[in-house]
Design a protein around this nucleic acid. Structure first.
Lengths: 214, 214
DNA sequence: ACAAAAAATTTACTGTGTCCAGTTAATTCT
DNA sequence: AGAATTAACTGGACACAGTAAATTTTTTGT
């Protein structure tokens, strides 16, 4: 009949390459440096070619975001080792979270900036979010199961996530310049959250976390 | 000689009107709806006229941001009443914080979104940030002075701010759809933070805050 | 009334995302 | 092998953005 349609494999490969290029541009030139035309120039194709593989600009950015989430989830997974106690694991996840945000601020911005278009209609993005969320949830569940923390794991995990996110977020936005810095605040935040979420003697939990986060 | 230069008063009045118009557009059409041309159309002047009063687009947005901070600071101030205990005051500030963010999500985004250009070089924005920060810092200082909380007020205030900011931030980004909602998380967050920041019997502080935030 | 100077507008330029019409290239049927 | 079909791609427009330069309008002192 006619020309064969692109195979799933070809489509995926083009998409992957484009996401890679877009990410590089993002890191190099920041948010406003990533234009369809710049991507196309960098890929050696016409500005319209990407439209065969993505509906529009938003879908391209959704793919880049999904990829960023994947990298983030990997970093979270990598922070986990079998020998950690639940609290140690929580502290390690917090550390990894902050480290990722500091080392890849653009990726982090891409994932969490408020002016990002919502993930509705982009299941890959939602999927990435869930993937990145699992390690923390698992660690909190373990901590509750072991009696290190008390409360609903879903709620506790949300509190920790949002708190650390808020801290990182303000740091990246350059709003922590007056007064204490991120390095100083993170241990305080973690210990405060832990202390507020359990019944054990405060000095015990505090000592455990201080040993990890400093 | 020639024509008189614009008085300081005229300049300020034009700027104020423009910020007002821009804010309205922001609320109505969202981030991408606010263009210089739309502002000019709405103000009944040519697209170039604003350039007499602002250096460029960034400076316009800085003015809008400063104004948003002002409104935010006002909301914080309004949440304070003389008869509140330190802990009640903290809870009230947290409530007011969240309420403002929910009711004026665009203003909030404008202030805190990560992809916002930094406040460097825009002293009015920095000033607004400081203004919005003072009530919380004051309340924390009072709470430490009264013995309700323990620790460095600067650090404690930062922890509270960033935690609540993180929560609101994730909510506005639509990332709290799975599991617990903002209404449920906020009281938990506040009590957890308070409990983690003091030595008093947990049930006492918890009861006080639960009474306020629900 | 006139000249000069500042304000405001018009025009034009570059760069954006995207639509549309035309072109190229690959595959299959005869 | 050759023709027909059809998907992939290209290049050129368009509408919109921010803004620089030139131009016009308005206001004021003489």
């Amino acid at each position: 009949m006619g020309r064969a349609a692109l195979s799933e494999q070809e489509i995926q490969s083009f998409r992957d390459r484009l996401v890679e290029v877009a990410t590089r541009l993002f890191v190099r030139d920041g948010h406003s440096g990533v234009t369809l035309r710049a991507i196309a120039r960098e890929m050696g194709c016409s500005p319209m070619t990407p439209y065969r593989y993505f509906r529009d600009r938003d879908e391209i950015f959704a793919a880049v975001r999904a990829s960023a989430y994947q990298a983030f989830a990997d970093a979270q997974e990598a922070a986990i080792t079998p020998d950690q106690s639940p609290l140690e694991r929580l502290a390690a996840l917090g550390e990894a979270y902050v480290t990722f945000a500091i080392e890849s601020p653009d990726a982090y911005r891409l994932q969490f900036s408020l002016s990002q278009p919502s993930a509705d209609g982009y299941p890959e993005v939602r999927e990435g979010e869930l993937l990145a969320w699992m390690p923390l949830l698992g660690a909190v569940q373990a901590a509750v199961a072991s009696g290190d923390l008390e409360g609903d794991p879903q709620i506790l995990a949300h509190l920790m996530w949002s708190s650390v996110h808020g801290l990182v977020s303000l740091h990246l936005a350059g709003k922590l310049v007056m007064g204490p810095e991120l390095d100083e605040l993170l241990p305080h935040l973690l210990t405060t959250l832990m202390l507020g979420s359990q019944q054990r003697p405060a000095d015990l939990v505090g000592a455990t976390l201080q040993g990890i986060t400093t």
